[in-house]
């Protein structure tokens, strides 16, 4: 038995009393270290990046008079537009193929795996947790001029000379991106498929749909939220990818991320690099809004 303390009721002053009662204040206080890190690590750098994008390079320093000159350059000089378009094109194709190839896999695990489901999910997502750099590097080993494919085909006598289009091309970038980001597609697809009530499928069958019609009329529409978020989760991060185009892209495969790095590295025009980052961010934000709108619409239709 726990006894009541003899001490008189503790008096708290008003401020502590308010603090004890205000849930929000306690919550914010508890997570304040995290909030500080988020603000210092995300919000402040992005704001400074915006500020710097309106400066200009001045020798080894910066001219801090606000100007939109960098943005004008980004809009007018063809190289920037070309790379941006190419980034979206390459990411778009990679996203398309990833989702297309991952859908049957997610479908299989959601509908046809009954035992050890967890093991399958772990197996499908495990590679994603290993170093991105090394996974990209692995494709260089495979697609290289003297790489796995070329040397194997040469040894087998299927080709006379190494296939040159394999490495340093947009194709190489697309293949690698699709492979490296598969887990990002599998998970949302799996979740949305798993959620589908199996009795709906039985009802569709009962009402006369064969497997294919049933898939087109029930399964696919119901899994659209998963498809949309899979596209979102792959398309957005890959547009700004640096490693894959740098290792496998060659001149044709260079993307906007590499150009930004160039500005901060060899070219040493930080304000221009900042402006390009902001342009990329703006595009991403706009696309995110589109995805958000699509998701909401898809969910509304289901609701």
């Amino acid at each position: 038995m726990v006894s009541v303390p003899d001490a008189a009721p503790v008096r708290r002053n008003r401020l502590t009393a308010w603090f004890r009662r205000s849930e929000a204040a306690q919550g914010y206080a508890l997570m304040s270290p995290t909030l500080v890190v988020l603000v210092v690590g995300i919000a402040v750098p992005l704001l400074i990046l915006i500020a710097m994008s309106m400066w200009t390079r001045d020798g080894f320093g910066f001219d801090m008079t606000p100007t939109f000159a960098n943005y004008e350059r980004a809009a007018t000089e063809p190289i920037f537009g070309t790379l941006l378009t190419r980034s979206f094109f390459v990411s778009g194709l990679a996203t398309f193929f990833t989702v297309l190839l991952c859908y049957p896999m997610a479908y299989y695990v959601a509908f046809h795996v009954h035992r050890n489901k967890m093991l399958w999910i772990v197996l499908m997502t495990l590679p994603f947790w290993t170093s991105y750099l090394l996974r990209v590097f692995a494709w260089r080993v495979i697609l290289g001029y003297e790489g796995v494919i070329n040397s194997a085909f040469l040894t087998a006598g299927w080709i006379e000379a190494p296939l040159e289009f394999l490495l340093y091309s947009q194709t190489a970038v697309i293949i690698t991106l699709a492979h490296a980001w598969a887990a990002f597609a599998i998970l949302p697809l799996y979740v949305s498929l798993e959620k589908i009530d199996k009795s709906l499928l039985e009802a569709a069958t009962d009402l006369g749909d064969g497997p294919f019609t049933r898939f087109m009329r029930i399964t696919l529409p119901l899994s659209m939220p998963g498809v949309i978020s899979a596209c979102f989760l792959i398309f957005i991060p890959t547009t700004g990818d640096y490693i894959t185009p740098a290792l496998l892209g060659g001149p044709d495969g260079v993307m906007i991320g590499n150009l930004i790095q160039l500005q901060f590295g060899p070219v040493n025009n930080w304000p221009m690099g900042s402006a390009l980052s902001i342009v990329l961010m703006a595009w991403i934000a706009a696309l995110a809004l589109v995805f958000l709108f699509l998701t909401r619409k898809a969910k509304d239709q289901l609701a």
Partner: peptide, 16 residues
């Protein structure tokens, strides 16, 4: 009041 003791300032882990 529980067993004559006022409870307002007694936290849950000290109540009988």
């Amino acid at each position: 009041y529980i067993d004559g003791q006022p409870m307002s300032d007694v936290p849950p882990f000290q109540r009988p």
